[in-house]
């Protein structure tokens, strides 16, 4: 059983907040889903060696400039909530005091 505190902690880790009035319902629903997926515990898992792993391959491109510098800059910068020239404005996180 998940407690409200555990759900609150998960939310903090995921950078979202859950209002106190929602917390009870959220915890219950969360619990129900976790109980449902918990049935995986009863799955008779074959030894890992008998299962073929998915084929994995690295995909790398050749070094080089895929597009000329600046091609997409304005389009991307136009999405910024706040900009200074081509720079994104964010809060200062290191203080000088």
């Amino acid at each position: 059983m998940a407690t409200k505190e555990e759900v609150k902690k998960l939310a903090a880790l995921a950078r979202i907040s859950i209002a106190d009035e929602e917390l009870e319902k959220f915890t219950q629903e969360f619990d129900a889903v976790i109980a449902y997926v918990g049935q995986l515990e009863s799955l008779n898992q074959p030894p890992a060696s008998s299962l073929q792993p998915q084929a994995l391959r690295n995909v790398l491109r050749e070094d080089g400039e895929p597009t000329a510098p600046g091609t997409n800059t304005e389009k991307l910068v136009a999405q910024f909530p706040e900009r200074e020239g081509n720079a994104l404005v964010v809060k200062q996180i290191i203080s000088h005091d």
Partner: peptide
Amino acid sequence: RRILLGTFVLSAGYIDAYYRKADAARAV
């Protein structure tokens, strides 16, 4: 809700019970 579930099943202590088990079920 799904972000919370995902954060939970990937967290240390639960990843083996949930994520790895689900991945094995997928292979089966």
